[in-house]
Design a protein around this nucleic acid. Structure first.
Length: 233
RNA sequence: UCUACUAG
């Protein structure tokens, strides 16, 4: 099963999901035993194939063989449906879970965000705060992104306070998400402060600043930042 | 060999 899984995973990584998925089909046909990773990778292949319908078939099989009771498989399902905008399916998996963790919550919040429904994403975050699962660094990145999408500066600030109060680990991604939130919510001076204080910056940090200047009409400054970027993509 | 995250 290790080898089979590696084949599915490897072909997906090489952007050949058709081939990857054919290994999964072969496993089914030849009654090869499967573990949770077989399903996780098969769903990955469906995601690359843009085939929600095939994903649903895999979901059925997951039911049949009992892997719906596996937290990681369920999280992967929530993410799969959320990615394709099937929020009702994602929500159903989420709601019917006997156990959810921080990944389940974050994947669900991110699903609403991808569908450009930041209000619902933020409402979900609110219920998360009332649950027994603590948000982590990744959750807060998603939440900053929701604030940015909504343009809600005061909410963004309160999340910023939450990060400080709870000593959330400040990764580069988190700083970038916070920076971008301030840029998009009209807190540009705060964004610039963060940017100037950041020890490490990447293309995301620079692009958010350039975007901010460009949207403000400060094209010369946007150009200046562009010229100063150490690396571009 | 396993699941969630930031800009354009």
């Amino acid at each position: 099963v290790y080898i089979w899984n590696t084949m599915i995973r490897g072909y997906c990584k090489a952007q050949k999901p058709v081939v990857g998925f054919s290994f999964f089909q072969k496993m089914v046909r030849e009654y090869v035993e499967m573990d949770r990773r077989s399903f996780v990778f098969a769903l990955k292949a469906c995601e690359l194939l843009h085939r929600v319908d095939v994903g649903i078939l895999i979901h059925c099989r997951i039911w049949k063989v009992g892997f719906v009771f596996d937290l990681i498989v369920r999280n992967r399902l929530i993410h799969f449906y959320g990615n394709w905008g099937c929020l009702d399916y994602a929500q159903k998996v989420f709601d019917e879970s006997c156990e959810v963790d921080v990944v389940s919550w974050t994947a669900m919040i991110d699903g609403y965000l991808k569908k450009k429904r930041p209000d619902e994403a933020l409402r979900l975050f609110d219920s998360m705060l009332g649950s027994s699962v603590e948000p982590n660094q990744v959750t807060l990145i998603t939440v900053f992104s929701a604030c940015a999408q909504k343009g809600d500066l005061s909410l963004g600030k309160s999340i910023h306070k939450y990060v400080e109060k709870n000593n959330v680990k400040c990764s580069l991604n988190l700083m970038n998400a916070m920076l971008d939130m301030y840029v998009k919510c009209g807190g540009f001076s705060l964004a610039k402060e963060i940017f100037d204080e950041m020890e490490i910056k990447d293309v995301f940090s620079w692009t958010s600043m350039i975007n901010g200047y460009a949207k403000k009409g400060e094209l010369d400054l946007a150009r200046k930042y562009f010229d100063e970027m150490p690396e571009r993509n």
